[in-house]
Nucleic acid binder design. Structure first.
Length: 300
DNA sequence: CCCATTTGACCGCC
DNA sequence: GGCGGTCAAATGGG
């Protein structure tokens, strides 16, 4: 994307970004305040107002996210989402946390793109195993947590690999909706520290899937998740999929529903669908947000 | 029987 | 050639 920014805009771009990020953070705080109010209210009393206020906050957050996206040059990638979409499109690609995207890597180089779509003749191979392209150009972000926490999306484990010079294997997950909705989101989870246990989750791509899970189903899932106490390496798989058979598609139909999973990790709720799993408040987070190469590093 | 996980094979990139 | 990411057959659980 060759967006030519006017000189003045370029010089102010960083400042604009800062302002937007601050604004977004303020909106997040507002949402938390709303959430606190909501928790003190008995359900049914004025919940509607709170709910609509939350919707507004979500739209505000969405606007911030989109603006940041545009500034980062992601517009052409079609990642921009409407405030309404924000509600159903959460953690994986993090529209609400879009500022943390690696904008430089979000842009697919044309040559890579051609590689991606060109069909490499599989005639000489027995099957299609391993026929993939490394997603070096896709945006990624990493998160370290002390617990494995559900990020509200449905993940399906598709591989596990022993990584060189790493004590623990890396687990590979893709979005459950990869095939039915062509959702390209994937993530890797790896235990990087034993004591205390630290799990590094690296997300790739955005969730383009829509969330179909009914609220009641989600509730059920959350209850199940709360009962689960992950303990070791293989919980990586079991944790993410303990709900697998009965609740295949775990996703967040609405940010509030998403937030409701926050207690899982003992977090105070936040509108940011990433923060909810970040364990930022619960203590351990090692790094806030960082990306595979360099570029942006925001602390919210 | 269906579906998710496991695990070894396969393949691209460095 | 090694490493890491993905695929898909085999396996197991519900």
């Amino acid at each position: 994307m060759e967006l030519s920014w006017p000189e003045s805009v370029l010089s102010n771009r960083e400042r604009v970004m800062e302002e937007l990020i601050q604004g977004r953070e303020l909106a997040s705080q507002l949402c938390r305040v709303l959430d606190d109010h909501k928790s003190t209210l008995v359900s049914g009393c004025g919940g509607g107002d709170i709910g609509s206020a939350e919707g507004l906050v979500n739209k505000i957050l969405g606007s911030f996210a989109n603006t940041l996206l545009i500034l980062n040059g992601n517009e052409a990638d079609g990642e921009i989402v409407s405030g309404d979409q924000i509600q159903g499109n959460s953690s994986g690609g993090g529209s609400a946390d879009s500022s943390s995207w690696d904008a430089n890597h979000a842009i697919i180089k044309s040559e890579d793109f051609h590689e991606e779509i060109s069909c490499k003749s599989p005639s000489t191979i027995k099957d299609r195993r391993g026929s993939y392209k490394r997603r070096r150009t896709s945006h990624s972000w990493t998160r370290d947590t002390q617990d494995l926490i559900d990020d509200g999306h449905a993940w399906r484990k598709y591989g596990q690999k022993v990584i060189h010079n790493a004590k623990h294997p890396r687990n590979y997950f893709r979005c459950t909706h990869k095939f039915d909705q062509s959702c390209q989101a994937t993530k890797h989870v790896q235990k990087i520290l034993d004591d205390p246990p630290v799990f590094r989750t690296t997300y790739y791509g955005n969730h383009t899937c829509r969330d179909y899970l009914k609220a009641s189903e989600l509730k059920e899932v959350i209850i199940k998740e709360e009962k689960l106490q992950p303990s070791d390496d293989h919980m990586m798989a079991s944790h993410h999929h303990n709900h697998s058979s009965s609740c295949d598609y775990i996703v967040s139909p609405h940010p509030t529903a998403f937030k409701s999973s926050c207690p899982l990790s003992g977090l105070s709720s936040t509108i940011d669908p990433y923060d909810h799993e970040g364990d930022v408040m619960s203590g351990l987070i090692v790094e806030p947000y960082y990306f595979d190469d360099e570029v942006l590093q925001y602390e919210f």
